[in-house]
Amino acid sequence: MTARGRITDPLRAGGITLTVIAVLAVLGIWRTPYDPTAFAVRLRLAAPTLAHPFGTDEFGRDVLSRVLAGAHLSLAIGFGAMLVSLLLGVPLGLLAAFDRGWLGAAIMRAADLAISLPPILLGLLILAVTPPSLGKTILAVGLVYVPIMVRLARAVALGLLEEDFVQAARARGEGAVSILVREILPNAWPPIIVECGLRVTFAILLGASLSFLGLGPQPPSSEWGLMIAESRQFLDQAPWLALAPGLCLCALLVAVNATGEGLRARLDPSHG
């Protein structure tokens, strides 16, 4: 059967695409074909040409250069938010699994509460009150996913605590830290990594939506969601303004999604 080939394909294809995008994004911080902030009045809203493959915007800025210069922002929001939820959520979840007293209960009630807000609202609320910036977008998107991580980490740890090999460790008189480090963590990471892989897609989506609403990095930044928002006035005259960052964003999201799904197929065979 081709099952094996099919399962590994999205992981490889997604991983390669993602790596290429990441390399371009990092390069784009320092080097782009043109200065992404340089105005060129005579070249306003120029259609794509060989010299400007993605055309120029209303200030005559090279869209390709702007897309490249903004690429790292989407990646930063996606992976940064995932890291935030990971670093906050996993320790809290593990604590809730190990502590059967008031602390564990309090953590879980707080997670229940946070999860009862629709995802985008929490982000909107946080970003509405304080001036938006990249860091705050990352934090807001990350916080949205913290309760999901808390629940997942707790459920995984609770399941593992019931396993016989943990009982065997207790029969050796191992302490909580040793059980956590030697027995729980080595087995807990696959489902957590899988969840992270899937979360990055949603984090990039949510981050781009917030930017699109003006609650992310501010102009003259070339964050892709923001670029698409700014392009709306010129849809008739210069569709490339929307298409260039939009298609790049889609490519990134499909690549991340493929990688996440590929990881899941690899690490969690119980899901088709």
């Binding site: 016989d164 090999f165 065997a168 029969a171 050796r172 008189g173 027995e183 080595p186 087995n187």
Partner: peptide, 30 residues
């Protein structure tokens, strides 16, 4: 001095450790 052997061989051993690690831990511990 008091140890245990479990029913289900599939869950009794930590799947992330080699046999050597599994056997070595009690040696170190005691």
């Amino acid at each position: 001095r008091a140890q245990i052997v479990f029913q289900n061989p599939d869950t009794a051993l930590n799947p992330r450790h080699t046999v050597a690690t599994i056997l070595r831990r009690p040696l170190d511990r005691f």
